[in-house]
Amino acid sequence: MYKQKIEHVMLDFVNGRNTPSTIKDAMVYSLQAGGKRIRPILLLAVIEGYGKDIEAGMKTAAALEMIHTYSLIHDDLPSMDDDDLRRGKPTNHKVFGEAMAILAGDGLLTHSFQLIAEDELITSDQKIKLLGLLAKCAGPEGMVGGQVADIEGENKSLTVDELESVHVRKTGKLLIFSALAGAIISCASGAEQSKLEQFAHHIGLAFQIQDDILDIEGTEELIGKRTGSDEFKRKSTYPGLLSMDGAKEKLRFHLDKALSSLEELSMDTALLKQIAHLIVNRNH
């Protein structure tokens, strides 16, 4: 239910703008490529857990997924990960060319802030908090900075702490935004926000550990892109540093930490627990 609503909001917004057809087609192509939509679903799950109307968070959730999608378009470029497939389909630059793929990513990034700014279901104070937090989590202090560290970590042997620092930013910060945005829209207390941030921190690391495991144990058919790319690029991974058994033990550690962070919350945490288990047990 969440997933379809999020996709409707994204596509309705992009298709409703007065933009050149080529970039609109490129943006829509990647938005329609599928995906688990874990980040926006987490945001809405927090709102539902507090018993609030999820419609108040729908545009922020859609904006968050636009940012995630832009990051994937740019990650796939030849100058970055140089991937030909994303979710089983040709990557954006393979269909529209590198220049248009860059611009499609730029378009989704800037559209995301416009979508939140124009939301009539949240207060001006909430908009300011959300826009500032999203810029921090998605920008050089967060996801973009994590991508920089990831590139600079190629062909190097990182420590586990250094690897975690990469992934806290590259993957974890947008998940932290998901949880905190849901809390901001729900008017949750600072103490509750702190617990939700801890939850998101640990599921972000669990998400990346499972990604590393799937890059070795997964199949291209299920994952929708080539496997073994981390080894090819000589990237440090959790299985490489800890062994496969060690990585799986670390995965369980972060799942346990995430679940324990939920124990003192005043909300219904059932959906958050489901999301945590989904991240750990997914096969793609």
Rank of each mutant, 00 (worst) to 15 (best):
G105T: 00
L43H: 06
M66S: 06
K89A: 15
I102L: 13
A117V: 00
L43N: 10
D82M: 05
K136W: 13
A61P: 05
P140H: 08
L163R: 05
K52L: 00
S79Q: 12
D75T: 01
L133M: 14
L133F: 12
A99S: 15
A104Q: 02
R87M: 12
L85D: 07
Q126E: 10
T110A: 09
F96W: 11
I102K: 01
G88W: 00
E98H: 11
D125A: 03
L44I: 08
N155F: 13
G146T: 03
I54F: 13
E48I: 01
K156M: 08
K129D: 14
V168E: 15
I122E: 00
F113G: 11
I47D: 07
S71I: 06
L121T: 12
L158N: 10
E162Q: 14
K129N: 12
A138V: 04
G145W: 13
S112K: 05
L108P: 10
L109V: 07
I38Y: 11
Q126Y: 08
E120L: 11
G153N: 01
V148G: 01
L72G: 03
I38E: 13
D81H: 04
E162I: 00
T69F: 07
K156T: 04
S112I: 04
L77S: 03
D84H: 13
R39V: 07
M66D: 02
V166I: 14
K94V: 09
I73W: 01
L103D: 09
G35L: 04
V166W: 11
I54G: 05
I54Y: 15
A99F: 11
K129Q: 15
D53Q: 05
I128P: 11
A61E: 10
P140G: 04
R87S: 11
L133N: 04
